[in-house]
């Protein structure tokens, strides 16, 4: 359980930024607080963004924009989200614990923390996604995930190019509301593919080899084998690396297959 010396609702992003900069080691931006609770952080100033209107989902300038305080539950119920990318964003989070948890957990919290088990990050990575930071500006999600966590910055929103791509999501879990043992998202737009594999158990990454297989017409099975071979799979409580590697081959194949069928149906 964490402790908090002072709890602040900044009235503007500038104020939030200024507060954070005062002591970015000990001050913290709050997300949904469910994961935070598991640690023992001693927070000097807890900065709650929930009164800054960041809980909006908007479609503008050719992008689907998810504010940092959008809850995972909103992804399941908001028609802008469910109507796009074959609904994989809502579907990817629908297994996470329960509705009351997903009403707390936020997009910003999930993406910023770079959790290996994040279903959402895995799904977003297979789309054309950028993150918008208060200081760091806008950068591609893959680049953001690969960089170390900048504790002096604030994630404001996630932008997804509204390009009408088809997508599919697959995961295997020990129990239906558990973390994924392995998660896979695949998308396709005009012959260009993205294959994302998460919970390896390390964080989600793209398999370029798998995407190339699909682009060159080698087919879903070859893509599955490529993702299994290209990426690194480790062991943890939930499964061994060897098993994960086998799962990767199967789930990538299945997701690619589904995506192809959706593409063919238009």
């Amino acid at each position: 359980m964490y402790t908090i010396k002072s709890y602040v609702f900044p009235e503007s992003l500038e104020e939030a930024d200024e507060l954070l900069q005062r002591d970015c080691r000990n001050n913290a931006i709050l997300g949904g607080c469910c994961w935070l609770k598991l640690g023992r952080r001693r927070i000097r100033s807890a900065i709650d963004l929930s009164k800054l209107g960041l809980d909006q989902i908007e479609v503008r300038d050719g992008f689907l924009e998810l504010g940092a305080c959008v809850t995972l539950r909103q992804l399941e119920t908001n028609p802008h989200v469910t109507a796009r990318f074959d609904g994989i964003l809502g579907r990817s989070v629908s297994h996470i614990v329960g509705v009351q948890f997903r009403n707390c957990a936020t997009v910003g919290g999930s993406v910023f923390s770079r959790f290996g088990f994040s279903d959402l990050t895995c799904a977003l990575l297979a789309l054309d996604t950028t993150v918008v930071l208060q200081r760091g500006g806008e950068l591609p999600l893959a680049e953001f995930l690969a960089s170390p966590i900048a504790f002096n910055d604030i994630l404001l929103k996630v932008r997804i190019r509204d390009d009408g791509r088809h997508a599919a999501y697959e995961s295997v879990r020990r129990s239906t509301t558990d973390f994924p043992t392995l998660a896979v998202a695949v998308s396709c737009l005009e012959g260009r593919w993205k294959v994302s594999v998460g919970a390896r158990p390390a964080r989600a990454v793209l398999s370029d080899d798998a995407a190339r297989c699909l682009e060159s017409g080698e087919g879903p099975a070859a893509a599955g084998a490529a993702a299994a071979n290209e990426l690194v799979y480790g062991s943890d409580l939930r499964a061994g690396g060897d098993y994960r590697k086998k799962l990767a081959a199967v789930l990538v194949r299945r997701a690619a297959q589904t995506c192809m069928e959706r593409e063919n149906k238009g």
Binding site: C33, C34, Q100, C104
Partner: peptide, 9 residues
């Protein structure tokens, strides 16, 4: 909306 009060500040 239902939330987990154990985790909600």
């Amino acid at each position: 909306k239902p939330v987990l009060s154990c985790s909600y500040p």
